[in-house]
Amino acid sequence: MRKYLKIVDRHKASLALRFVNNLIDMIILAIIHIILAIISTIIYNLTYNNFFFFFNNGGFLWDIFVGAIIAFIYFYLWEYYSDGKTPGKYMTGTKVISIDGTRPTRKQYLSRSLYRIIPFESFTFFGTDGWHDSMTDTRVINYKNYQAEKQTKSEIDNIGIKEIA
């Protein structure tokens, strides 16, 4: 079990900020879907390979399945390789961290991405934390404020300690 730090809870991103993060990321995901649809159409028209036709015309459930896979890959890769930030989080100054204040593990990032593709998971934010946060022991925080408080606490803790030049 991870140690839960109060400083992480104090700097949790607001629901409005989380909504903006999600909106930006969903716009980018929609653009990715459009690009993939155009590419698959072009490839189908050049090769007449039925897979590429099926990619665009597989029906409603197929679209949901493909969308879930693309969203999973998108969120996992962005958060894991950019230290807890997606483009939406970059724009709003937020970041994913573990409840103990450390960088989340690969498993936590993977789990966050999997929980996100559960239908209606976004409605879990009407409680305190969404499933992809609470089930993975992670939080999205306002990173600048979090760093400022950590720096202040560190400076207070170091009062009276001699510096060696």
Score class of each variant (00 low, 15 high):
residue 75 F to W: 03
residue 74 Y to C: 11
residue 110 L to P: 01
residue 156 I to Y: 01
residue 19 F to C: 05
residue 116 R to F: 03
residue 33 H to G: 10
residue 6 K to F: 05
residue 5 L to R: 02
residue 24 I to A: 09
residue 103 R to K: 14
residue 109 Y to P: 02
residue 93 G to P: 00
residue 48 Y to G: 01
residue 9 D to N: 14
residue 103 R to Q: 13
residue 161 I to C: 04
residue 134 S to M: 12
residue 99 I to M: 10
residue 84 G to A: 11
residue 117 I to V: 15
residue 140 V to G: 01
residue 2 R to S: 13
residue 138 T to Y: 02
residue 140 V to F: 00
residue 26 M to E: 03
residue 34 I to N: 10
residue 164 I to R: 10
residue 57 N to C: 04
residue 125 F to D: 03
residue 154 S to K: 12
residue 131 W to I: 10
residue 18 R to M: 05
residue 120 F to L: 11
residue 43 I to L: 09
residue 110 L to V: 01
residue 55 F to V: 06
residue 99 I to E: 13
residue 13 A to D: 02
residue 66 V to A: 06
residue 109 Y to S: 04
residue 121 E to Q: 15
residue 85 K to P: 03
residue 33 H to F: 07
residue 34 I to E: 10
residue 125 F to H: 07
residue 3 K to W: 06
residue 111 S to N: 04
residue 152 T to S: 09
residue 135 M to Y: 12
residue 38 I to N: 08
residue 44 Y to I: 09
residue 113 S to N: 10
residue 125 F to V: 10
residue 118 I to K: 07
residue 90 Y to K: 15
residue 147 Q to K: 15
residue 129 D to R: 14
residue 4 Y to S: 07
residue 164 I to K: 12
residue 31 I to C: 03
residue 83 D to F: 11
residue 21 N to K: 04
residue 7 I to K: 05
residue 82 S to K: 15
residue 100 D to E: 10
residue 75 F to Y: 13
residue 16 A to C: 03
residue 14 S to E: 09
residue 157 D to H: 11
residue 30 A to D: 01
residue 106 R to I: 06
residue 163 E to K: 15
residue 8 V to G: 08
residue 64 I to L: 14
residue 44 Y to W: 07
residue 154 S to I: 11
residue 58 G to L: 07
residue 71 A to Y: 04
residue 6 K to S: 10
residue 75 F to G: 00
residue 131 W to C: 11
residue 28 I to V: 13
residue 71 A to Q: 09
residue 131 W to N: 13
residue 38 I to L: 06
residue 145 N to Y: 05
